[in-house]
């Protein structure tokens, strides 16, 4: 039952991809649809992405952080002769910046990953950095691939893009040369996907969106790589279209082929869906209160904007109840009898 359900989920994500591909093919076949896609939908998608992304960030930002709750992963700053760990347990802003940089650029927390197993009735925690390695590889490659695409969006091409492309294509494999990041991107995706499909626990907790996100990015990559290496397209037409976008003079590209429309549709689905999906982790990580706060709680007071009043039991109420007993035990008391005229002022 469970197995069938999992398989259906995985299959559905493939079907969703196929549906987008089919839609793209249909669009490629129809001139009007092509015009609508490249001249209208493109802007809508970008607007959805931009506004959606900013909206999500602001939405998070509006919710206050009532308490200072950093997860401390190293020695706190306490006595001067005890070596504190400013990155794992930052006391000041600099440390927080360092810690966040570690998380964002090096996936610090994932680097800690381990694998728990029971071996001969004893739990063992093996080092397990594959997720860190492939995850980092995937994300860095994706970033570089996106940056390389600036060659289609800038004229004259931003200088660093050329340098990046030649570095990326340093190994002369094929013509045009194979980009290492393309390979790494696909390798990362394959790892992440296979891991989800093959590890029973992960398959158990994975949702349709988890598979779909990976497959969608993979589809973008595969169509892009195909256009570079197997079914070349006229880049001139493509750049004319992309430059039309960024100069607000959209033009419909000439003959570019189904593959290009697929690539375009996958990208559009990806960025339009992004603000509504878990892919927002790219923005969310900056706001994570367990990571982006300094562990200086006792040194600097954190203010809760909605600090709600609660019912409290004052000392006076307490003494009222236990006064006799306290006097008997010789514990000092504030007043000796009940019915004290003076009322305690509650704060």
């Amino acid at each position: 039952m469970q197995e069938v359900k999992q398989r259906i989920t995985i299959l559905t994500s493939f079907l969703a991809i196929a549906a987008i591909a089919m839609l793209a093919a249909a669009i490629a076949a129809s001139k009007t649809a092509g015009i609508v896609l490249t001249m209208v939908v493109a802007y809508i998608v970008f607007a959805v992405f931009l506004i959606g992304f900013v909206y999500r960030i602001i939405r998070w930002a509006i919710s206050p952080v009532p308490f200072r709750i950093p997860t401390t992963c190293g020695q706190e700053k306490s006595l001067p002769w005890i070596k504190a760990n400013p990155l794992e347990c930052p006391f000041g802003n600099l440390g927080v910046i360092g810690r966040m940089a570690g998380e964002i650029f090096l996936f610090r927390s994932l680097f800690r990953n381990s694998k728990a197993e029971l071996v001969n009735g004893r739990p063992v925690y093996g080092s397990s950095k594959w997720l860190w390695f492939f995850g980092l590889m995937f994300h860095v490659s994706l970033l570089l691939v996106i940056l390389r695409h600036l060659r289609f969006f800038t004229e004259p091409v931003v200088p660093f893009v050329g340098a990046l492309s030649s570095l990326d294509g340093f190994l002369e494999i094929g013509i045009p040369t194979l980009y290492m990041t393309d390979t790494a991107l696909v390798a990362g995706l394959i790892f992440l996907f296979m891991r989800r499909v093959l590890v029973p626990q992960l398959r158990y907790l994975s949702l349709f969106t988890d598979y779909f996100a990976l497959l969608l990015i993979a589809s973008v990559a595969v169509t892009g790589i195909s256009m570079r290496h197997f079914f070349p397209v006229d880049l001139n037409e493509i750049k004319t279209m992309t430059m039309g976008w960024v100069t607000f003079t959209p033009v419909v590209p000439g003959k570019t082929g189904i593959l290009f429309y697929m690539h375009l549709c996958f990208v559009m689905v990806l960025i339009a869906w992004l603000p509504f999906s878990k892919l927002m982790h790219m923005g969310g990580i900056f706001l994570s209160p367990t990571r982006n706060m300094a562990n200086n709680n006792r040194a600097r007071r954190h203010v809760n904007p909605w600090n709600a009043p609660v019912r409290v039991r004052t000392y006076k109420e307490y003494e009222e109840e236990f006064r006799e007993q306290m006097i008997e035990a010789g514990i000092p008391v504030e007043s000796t009898g009940p019915g004290e005229a003076e009322k305690d002022k509650q704060d």
Binding site: E155, T240, M243, V246, T247
Partner: peptide, 14 residues
Amino acid sequence: TFPFWYGKGESPVP
């Protein structure tokens, strides 16, 4: 939005 303002809105001639 880098590409939008990088070219200062001038449409390059393909």
